[in-house]
Design a binder for these strands. Structure first.
Lengths: 185, 185
DNA sequence: CCATCCATGTAACATGTTACATGATTAG
DNA sequence: CTAATCATGTAACATGTTACATGGATGG
């Protein structure tokens, strides 16, 4: 059926199918909101990317559309084909995950800086990781508090992974700072 | 001077300036190789992206070009302006680093799978992290062994960060597997 | 009535991947 | 001579970001 020109990651599709699968029919607007508030910490997309993708997915039979008034609201529902595709991706897809991180790039080039400059950069990286850590923990707390009708586990493991990675980054920064300037420990 | 339409990450530029700054004048071909073998674990780019970018950077005065025979080889050298720009980016740039990870997406949607399927996915994620860990450790070993004339520290901290992140992922996967199936621990 | 939110879409541009295309030089 | 490596580039396409554009409904 589909001629996959790339190895074809199509993660945006998967993310949308996942959200539709978990929380039932929704509009592009709803899905955009859910991107911001839930799947956001593993994948991002704005409405300008989501709307055209939903149209393509409908054309491919993964979802169906129903106009629902009175504003131009359109409700998308996942089809059997969509569920199958989602399941297949989860079970079969070998993630590529190429690292492309500005923070890691700064870490890479850190020795080009003087010790004080490098320590500044490290404290900035630490601050960013701490902010992220706080965000993820807050999210987990609300998630656990009002655990959404049995589906609360969706996103939970990824949240845990994100928290661990943030902690690791903070740890690395402290260790590296101590290595650069033994006096700052 | 430059009208930055985005917040303008231009990490490819920075990576190229970094490599030119560290190892001196080089051709696009050389830089493509160095991407594969050194900066690769924090940023990736193929020659089809590198050649046009070098042309733009030369036009912007960040580097100079000299044709050097006998093959069509062109040697690029970083200018004072280029060094300044690199330094400014390292010291001032607040990294964005939006997470966009297929692996994290699989983790997010893991509860959509049955326990055996989820465990399969986790072992695949573990295997990937272990491969990466081995690669990074091998790189660090060779780096430490022949530490390139005092410049050996370039990339070292990022390598350490990558290793820690891989270990964290492995840890998370073991923990999550135990949570899904207490019998597998 | 007017600001805010709901709701959808397109256009322009930046970035990244794969494939296509060409030719020089060197090692066996 | 011929295969591998050196060396450069372009084209087509996928993906992602920002900005532009429009209009309906609701609350104060």
């Amino acid at each position: 059926m589909s001629i996959l020109r790339y190895d074809d990651a199509m993660s945006l599709r998967i993310a949308l199918l996942g959200l539709l699968s978990v929380s039932g029919p929704a509009s592009g607007y709803d899905l955009t909101k859910k991107f911001e508030t839930s799947i956001n910490y593993v994948w991002q997309a704005g409405h300008s990317q989501i709307y055209p993708e939903l149209a393509k997915m409908a054309a491919d039979g993964l979802i169906t559309v129903e106009p629902e008034g009175p504003r131009g609201r359109k409700i998308y529902t996942i089809t059997r084909e969509g569920t199958d595709e989602l399941h297949r991706w989860l079970v079969e897809r070998v993630p590529t995950d190429p690292v492309r991180s500005e923070g890691a790039l700064q870490a890479f080039l850190l020795p080009l800086l003087s010790a004080p400059e490098a320590l500044d950069v490290l404290s900035r990286l630490t601050a960013a990781a701490e902010t992220r850590l706080a965000d993820l923990r807050a999210l987990r707390a609300t998630k656990l508090a009002l655990h959404e009708s049995d589906q609360w586990k969706i996103g939970y493991y990824a949240l845990d992974l994100g928290i661990r990675h943030a902690l690791t980054t903070i740890d690395w920064a402290r260790h590296t700072a101590a290595e650069i300037d033994p006096g700052s420990a």
